[in-house]
């Protein structure tokens, strides 16, 4: 037996991007959002990106708190407007790596319109969507991804609206990179986030995450650990699966993997091409700022 060893607490790899003075965070015990932040920190560390050029934009909600806890240039925007905010920032300063880190209700509920149009334009945003099937911060209301027959504070007799199949929505709208994992798949999450940081175009990652306090408790799914074990059992690896088939039912199997990885000219590529062709010399003066490093 060796003696207990001591290493600095500050050497935790996540500390490099964390505002430690704001800890402990407000997320409930067993919530999966912190786990995804660990994966994001590892992906950033391995990407060797200049962190001064990485921007994180969040909307409102539990996962909207991520921006506040990350020691990057991070922005906590109004409800559903993370993507419009990020769009403006990316177009104004194309050298930035813009990550949108938000929840299902914020991104495809309140901000659903922005989501589909950013995907249509193929704007170079890295969109990470924490999907916990509910509006957590406001008290567990039914959201756009709540599965049929799930209980929530606004559907006490069971949800009867079909929920969004987010990978299918993203691919149909025009995303060039679509993947889904659960918070159980931490190594895969870090790897996928790394791929997204290198990808040019609208990249979308859906992360199925436990909400033990509201969604889990109402639907009697147990605590956070029980939900994580459920993700482990129910996940089916299906790389390249047609996104139409990867919808999620209450306690049903969860298809995970990288579904879409294609190439398509991004918004800035086509904008530079079109304006350069029609305005020629007049545009050449502006375009030098619009070429990513």
């Amino acid at each position: 037996m060796s003696a207990p060893v001591e290493a600095p607490l500050a050497a935790n790899p996540v500390e490099a991007v964390l505002r430690s003075f704001r800890m402990p965070h407000i997320w409930c015990p067993g919530c999966g959002i912190g786990t995804t932040v660990n994966c994001f920190a590892r992906a950033l560390e391995q990407s060797k990106l200049n962190l001064d050029k990485v921007v994180v934009v969040s909307g409102i909600g539990c996962s909207g708190r991520v921006a506040g806890y990350l020691d990057l240039d991070s922005f906590h925007t109004t409800h559903g407007r993370a993507i419009p905010f990020a769009t403006g920032m990316k177009i104004a300063n194309p050298k930035l790596t813009v990550v949108v880190y938000s929840g299902d209700g914020d991104l495809v509920g309140i901000g659903g319109n922005h989501f589909i149009h950013a995907a249509r334009r193929n704007l170079d945003l890295k969109v990470i969507c924490i999907n916990n099937f509910t509006y957590g911060m406001t008290g567990g209301q039914m959201g756009p991804t709540t599965p049929v027959s799930a209980l929530s504070s606004t559907t006490p007799f069971g949800c009867f609206e079909p929920g969004f199949n987010l990978p299918h929505l993203a691919e149909s709208a025009g995303a060039v990179y679509v993947a889904r994992w659960t918070t159980y798949h931490v190594r895969q999450l870090a790897h996928t986030m790394g791929e997204m940081l290198r990808k040019n175009g609208f990249s979308f990652l859906e992360i199925i995450s436990p909400c033990p306090t509201l969604y889990g408790q109402r639907n009697r799914l147990g605590d956070g650990l029980a939900m994580m074990k459920h993700f482990k059992q129910q996940s089916v690896l299906r790389h390249g699966a047609p996104t139409k088939e990867v919808g999620i039912e209450l306690q049903g199997p969860i298809a995970v993997g990288k579904f879409v990885d294609i190439e398509r000219p991004s918004f800035l590529d086509v904008m530079n091409e079109q304006l350069g062709r029609t305005l020629e010399a007049e545009y050449a003066g502006c375009v030098k700022d619009h070429v990513p490093d």
Partner: peptide
């Protein structure tokens, strides 16, 4: 302590940033 491989999987899972593994 002899069984720990320092794989840092605990560090990836911990939602509260309270633990991490190191290889020696």
């Amino acid at each position: 302590p002899d069984g720990c491989t320092g794989c840092d999987l605990c560090g990836l899972y911990c939602p509260d940033f309270a633990i991490y593994g190191i290889m020696l």
